[in-house]
Amino acid sequence: MNVYTPSRLHRAALAVALPVIAAGALVACSDPATRPPLSVPASAAPVASAGTPATETHMINNNGHELAFYVTPGHSPAIVLDAGGGEDHTQWKDLVPQLSAATGSEIITYDRAGMGASDEVKGAWDVHAAVSDLRAGLTGLGVTEKMILVAHSQAGEVATYLVRENPGLVSGAVLVDASLPQFSTDEQIARVVAAGTAQIAASRSQPSTQQSRQLIATAQNYGPAHRAYHQVAWPDSVPATVIVSEKTPFDGSPQDAQHWRDAAAEFVKAGPGRTLVTAVGSSHEIPQDQPDLVRAEIEKMVAAHG
């Protein structure tokens, strides 16, 4: 097996993060029409570009913790952008005004628990809790059907469970170098766990940071969680465009990188209404490396299924 550098392993581990089986209960928040936007630190708030509607920040309570959602007003369908592991809403900061101008749609980004302005939740990263958080936010913001979902990396797992558990909520998805069920074979799970063991141990022995806590949370229950995820199928009723990077989160490990690309191709072949797009020359960070490609595919999905 190729040796991962710490930064590469951190990104790879977060990219294929945990779908733990225990589901959290959804807690709807108050009526968005009567709930004023909450002020957040200037560093956390998106900045509107000239000609773009001002972005509003809302704090949504779910299961006792607060989550920051950022809304650029517009019409339906809403476009919801879900950032990759270790990222907050600012991953999409350049795309938001461009999508708003091009589509006129409402644009929603947010910070998952423990990221950005959202509260941290202790324990293993739980995809079902993450789905509950996103669903609670969307419900509180009045988004109940036919949205367009864009998910990068780890958010692919959130997207998969969200569309399965909420028929009619998502009318189309763009999965940007996303973690997909086909990737998590027993052999691949063993390779990821083996590659990460030393760094997880090192992270536990060092002073706690947000990054180390994220990595440790991702590693907990990794094997059982991903064996469960491998059995999950994307619904045939929801069309999806998969954008796969050439380098993948496993750049430097050709075997793992090829398996990541093969998993994307297998996902596309497994159901109707699916399209595979390769981001030639791109790293795993496609939203930053090739934002025009991501925007174009989102606009196509809006036009076809919005």
Rank of each mutant, 00 (worst) to 15 (best):
P6N: 03
A155C: 12
P239C: 11
K269F: 05
L149P: 09
M115Y: 11
G168W: 08
W260Y: 10
G271Y: 03
A33W: 11
T275P: 03
L175A: 06
G196H: 08
V302H: 09
Q211F: 01
D236G: 14
L293G: 07
V244M: 14
T275D: 11
P32A: 05
D82A: 14
L38F: 04
G84L: 08
V268E: 00
Y110F: 15
T72S: 09
A124W: 09
Y222F: 14
G252S: 11
V192C: 04
V268G: 01
A22R: 13
A240L: 12
V302E: 05
K93Y: 11
L180A: 02
T218E: 01
G281Y: 07
H58D: 02
Y70V: 03
V174I: 12
H259Y: 11
L67F: 01
G51Q: 06
A33I: 10
H58T: 00
A13C: 04
H65V: 06
P32S: 04
Q220H: 07
A23M: 04
T185V: 00
R204F: 08
A23E: 12
L26H: 09
A155F: 12
P272M: 06
S205V: 01
V71N: 04
A240S: 14
V96R: 03
P6I: 01
A13K: 04
A28H: 06
N62D: 10
V80E: 01
D256T: 15
V232L: 15
P32F: 07
A240W: 01
G273F: 08
T72I: 09
G273E: 03
Q258T: 14
G281T: 07
V158P: 01
G306H: 12
S105I: 00
L162K: 00
S153V: 13
I60R: 00
D236N: 15
K146L: 07
V268A: 00
Q258V: 10
Q288E: 13
I189E: 02
V242M: 15
V150A: 03
T52I: 08
P254K: 15
A265I: 06
D111C: 00
R164K: 10
S203K: 10
P207M: 00
K93G: 05
K300P: 04
P73K: 04
P224T: 05
L162V: 02
S132H: 04
P181F: 03
G156R: 08
V121H: 02
Q188S: 12
S283T: 15
W92N: 07
H305A: 07
Q210G: 14
V121I: 15
G142S: 05
R135V: 07
L276M: 14
F183Q: 10
T5Q: 10
H10A: 14
H89G: 06
A195E: 12
V131Y: 09
T185N: 13
V71Y: 01
N221Y: 04
A101E: 13
L99R: 02
V3I: 13
A130N: 12
I243C: 15
N221D: 15
E266C: 08
E187K: 13
A296T: 06
S282T: 13
A101D: 08
P37Q: 02
N221Q: 12
V71M: 06
T57S: 13
A101L: 11
L38A: 13
P41F: 07
H259G: 10
Q231K: 15
L138V: 00
W234C: 03
L38W: 04
Y4L: 10
D289T: 12
E187T: 14
A279Y: 09
P46Q: 05
I243Q: 13
A50F: 08
E120K: 12
S49T: 09
